[in-house]
Amino acid sequence: MAAVACGAPSHVGVIDDLGRRVEVPSRIHRVVTLAPNLTEMVYALGGQKLLVGTDDFSDFPPEAKRLRKVGGMQPNVELIAALSPDVVLATTNGNHASLAPSLASAHIAMFVVAGERLEQIPSGLRKVADILKLTSGEEASSALRRAIERQRRHRIHPPSVLFAVWASPMYVAGGETFIDDLIALTGAKNAVPPTMHGWPAFSLESFAASPPDILLYPGASVSRKQIDAVLERVPHWKGTVAAVDENRFTRPGPRVAQAAADLNAILDRWKPTP
């Protein structure tokens, strides 16, 4: 590859998951991540020395809490720039994308990594490694792929699973999400009709019409009380309710294989009612 001869360090053009062409410095020393799954990826790749800042939600591994924070839903551009990163890693979340022009004005590259589907997670890990010039990418990515594959099950009586990210109104994981992929991987079926994509609102009427065998909810942001308050309104429903580790299940990061294992454990305990 012929390096362009100029005063500044040379850059390479890469295409990110929004299809944008991003000029990233060929040597990376400082990285800011804007989402916890990306922070976890950088740690999983052994690239934590490069991390100079993360978003407010990045709390895993626990050391990540000590990194400089640049804001939550709407990261602060100026705080990011103050860390003078060589590259900012972001997700397809629209708020991140809207920061790109502003960061570009400060000559800071932003690379967007998609994490909507399960298969994007190992390949995302690979992309992050390539951007950061970490050699562990191929190995980590195929290890994760194998770990995910180890959780594949085939069940004769596949239970239907509803994953509610919020109780009232009930927002659920619909088709074409990595949760939907996890449910399929573990041999269950999503209670949400396949025509409902993304994270739609799910009415109690739909709940009664296609009652799930198992209702899952993220244990940190939704309480059992909130779930019970909703279930009181469908008294005939007799399914299983289980809280899951919020961060494993809502972050499309390297711990997704553990989420699949958690899900398998729940599904294995379930017995079809005769």
Binding site: E78, S84, S102, A106, H107
Partner: peptide
């Protein structure tokens, strides 16, 4: 250069 980048690239626009 970082402070310069912040002032010229982010705050000024």
């Amino acid at each position: 250069p970082t402070a310069r980048r912040i002032v010229m690239g982010i705050r000024l626009p």
